[in-house]
């Protein structure tokens, strides 16, 4: 019996198996954000359709949905219909803002002409807003509550269900 070998074996093996075992419920695709609970970084950006300025601060007092997207991103194209439908249904109770990520104004305009628009889409030209929100890839959607704090975040294409669920959190 070689105790050293046993000891080294146990020291190497036990932690690996334990860590792997406790990691089962982990979703490797989920990227958590430290932004939840913090104030949403403010921005004033140019609307892609009207060229007017859109400020986040103007929507203080009601829940805001900030959706980072681009026309070249297929999941963004997929979730567009759900966002437009929700924005139309909720009217002025909730403010939706689309932040265009690394894309051109012409592309965005053509896209919205074709697929419909229901809320302002602003151009984040130097991606400063995306950086402020810690956007890792598009689409990512932030749900801001009445006080201006980020209440929830969704990564990937939104569905009507996911929208409702997160909005409920933001509306509390």
């Amino acid at each position: 019996m070689n105790r050293t070998v046993m000891l080294i074996g146990a020291v190497v093996a036990v932690p690996i198996v334990t860590v792997l075992a406790v990691s089962f419920d982990r979703d490797p695709h989920e990227i958590r954000t430290p932004m939840v609970g913090r104030p949403a970084p403010s921005f004033t950006l140019r609307d892609a359709s009207t060229d007017g300025a859109v400020a986040l601060a103007a929507s203080r007092g009601k829940p805001v949905v900030i959706n980072f997207w681009a026309t070249w991103c297929a999941p963004c194209v997929r979730e567009h219909a759900a966002l437009v439908a929700a924005a139309r249904a909720l009217g002025s109770d909730v403010q939706f803002i689309g932040v265009v990520y690394q894309d051109s104004q012409e592309q965005v305009r053509a896209f919205l002409d074709q697929r419909g628009r229901a809320y302002p889409m602003v151009l984040d030209e130097d991606a400063r807003t995306a950086i402020a929100y810690g956007v890792y890839g598009v689409p990512e959607t932030f749900f801001v509550d009445r006080t201006g704090a980020i209440a929830a975040k969704h990564t990937g294409a939104l569905t009507a269900d996911a929208l409702t669920r997160n909005l409920r959190v933001a509306a509390q």
Binding site: M1, N2, R3, V5, M6, G9, A10, A13, V17, L20
Partner: peptide, 15 residues
């Protein structure tokens, strides 16, 4: 299976 194989290996080598 990995855990069993590890135990087997460590026990065999140790012994």
């Amino acid at each position: 299976f990995l855990a069993v194989s590890l135990i087997w290996t460590v026990a065999m080598l140790g012994a």
